[in-house]
Nucleic acid binder design. Structure first.
Lengths: 200, 200
DNA sequence: TCATTACTGAACATTTTGTTCGATTTAATT
DNA sequence: AATTAAATCGAACAAAATGTTCAGTAATGA
């Protein structure tokens, strides 16, 4: 018996399909890409594609799964690594990682498929950030802005910064982007956590 | 000769098609809606559809054209109505208008088609806000955060507030949403315009 | 080597898109 | 009310894309 998971053929085929999608996404919007084009470029049979992925969306999610996991980890560590300072910490390494995956990011930005991806990212961040804010909320003191709105604002700000940055050819350094993120967000967080220290 | 623009039939057909799309968008994602379904529900012939709209996207844009125009107008007046106070003014009436069009807004949020719409909205706002910020920028004094990033942040914040609000069944009043918007954004604007007045 | 598994590719059914065109209905105008 | 131009209908097409099936071939792990 073989364990199909480790069959070289499987790996090669999936890789070829992922690469085909990735390269097609540099050229056109996800919604305009057909499965036909994918299998042509990947050089695999029609039935082969369907034996791996049921739909185009499934392929997309499989393609960005790793990236999604990594981005989520950044935010997770970013939120948890927080003993001494009540503010959210650095997103420098986050932006650095985006930089390393700029190709797929650009592809995602062009497509409506990307929106599905970014929604997932944002939802995940949102949960983590809300949990963080809840834990930092002084008891008995209602925040100026509801926690749910604030966490939504923080995650959407990070995401919109990310999108803007990629769309504008990453013309600032990750360190600068981190600073801008803090400039935009820190005052809002100050209104929740009591510690009003001026930073920098 | 007839002037087709004012032919009742034209108006009725287009209305039926728009309504069909609108009602379908309440049920399923835009990308999953077929032209077949639209013409079935609208009760118009296939050729009739194509005599009005070349593609499904064209129909969508036509459907939200009015809404788009109105939203743009709000932001325009919102930016220009700005003699005494250096901050952006009220978005209360903006949220009120969203409330009145909640049906179509909810449909837009469900769909990737909506993303196309929201991108347009955001791009338009962004231009106006950037222009506004440029005009308010004290000469010779560089802002903490680049104007382009800041204007992007403001428009994306308004949009994400709007999305959050609609998704959460508009559980706050437009007045509250206006206040939250200011709470989130005013500190950022303060870093650009010199006038540091505490508000409210 | 050998059994197993994955891939091929062609054939097929289905769905959706988009076009065409003559017949029919509808509305504006006189 | 009659005329006339335009809009709609609907059926018939062609084309493209999706998704399934299956027998034959190739590659792999043991």
């Amino acid at each position: 018996m073989k364990s199909n998971e480790y069959d070289r053929r499987v790996w090669k085929t999936r890789q070829a399909i992922h690469d085909a999608l990735s390269s097609l996404m540099e050229e056109k919007k996800y919604s305009k890409i057909t499965i036909q084009e994918i299998i042509d470029r990947a050089n695999v049979g029609r039935s082969t594609f369907y034996s791996h992925f049921a739909t185009k969306d499934e392929l997309l999610f499989s393609s960005v799964e790793d990236l999604l996991e990594i981005l989520n980890q950044y935010i997770k560590s970013y939120i948890e690594h927080d003993e001494e300072n009540p503010r959210l910490i650095s997103v420098v390494d986050f932006f650095e990682h985006i930089q390393e995956n700029s190709k797929i990011m650009k592809g995602l930005l062009k497509s409506e498929g990307g929106d599905l991806f970014f929604e997932k990212v944002e939802a995940y961040w949102n949960d983590g950030i809300e949990e963080y804010l809840q834990s930092k909320l002084p008891k008995g003191k209602a925040p100026k802005v509801p926690i749910k709105i604030l966490s939504n604002h923080i995650s959407s700000t990070l995401l919109s910064l990310l999108k803007w940055w990629v769309k504008n050819d990453m013309s600032y350094t990750p360190i600068q982007m981190d600073q801008y993120f803090r400039d935009l967000i820190d005052p809002c967080i100050d209104s929740v956590v009591s510690n009003h220290s001026t930073m920098d």
